[in-house]
């Protein structure tokens, strides 16, 4: 079995195809469901027909089987499955950055909203900061774009949700 030389940015080292890892994760997840989560989270007492745990169990077994198929298929192909997806550390880092930005925006919104106690007070502080962060994550935009995103966009959302739909935000 031979593997092409790895290039910078390649998703996985040679021999470890993304789908092989995916198959392993699926199987482990299914086993976790079957032997821990389903037994502790579903109570079969009082069922008249089929037990409530039957569908989750059947689906978990199905997922375990599909994970095994993915593993077997990749081992057979030697890590060069053309249908495999691509996932890099940069992708994961970017995802974490975006989720962190949204989460921080929500935390600020909640804290400021709770402290001031008036509708949209948290939004007016957190949303411009969040939008500036999202724009920064996206690209180096001209200054007017930051200003527009920080002021005009929250104003339109505020007008639409508070005056138009009468829905409160913290």
């Amino acid at each position: 079995m031979s593997f092409p030389p790895q290039r910078p940015g390649d998703p996985t080292p040679p021999g470890l195809a993304t789908d092989l890892l995916l198959g392993i994760v699926i199987v482990l997840f299914s086993l976790l469901l079957l032997f821990w989560i389903i037994p502790t989270q579903v109570n079969d007492a009082g069922a008249f027909g089929l037990p409530p745990s039957l569908a989750p169990r059947a689906l978990a077994w199905l997922m375990a089987a599909l994970g095994t198929v993915l593993i077997a298929g990749n081992l057979r192909l030697g890590g060069e499955d053309p249908l495999a997806g691509k996932l890099t550390w940069q992708d994961a880092g970017h995802l974490a950055l975006c989720i962190l930005a949204v989460a921080l925006m929500l935390i600020v919104m909640r804290l400021v909203g709770d402290a001031i106690g008036r509708p949209y007070s948290g939004f007016w502080i957190a949303a411009p900061l969040g939008l500036i962060a999202f724009t920064l994550i996206h690209t180096r935009a001209p200054l007017w774009a930051y200003a527009f995103n920080a002021l005009a966009a929250p104003a339109v959302i505020y007008a639409g949700f508070w005056w138009g739909l009468e829905l409160p935000l913290p």
């Binding site: 939008l131 996206h138 774009a145 995103n149 829905l167 935000l169």
Partner: peptide
């Protein structure tokens, strides 16, 4: 319309929409 205007606003709209609804 440049994408640096559109995508950040759509992301905020998703968050706000789910929060209020």
């Amino acid at each position: 319309v440049p994408p640096f205007i559109i995508y950040p606003i759509v992301l905020l709209l998703c968050v706000v929409g789910i929060y209020v609804s």
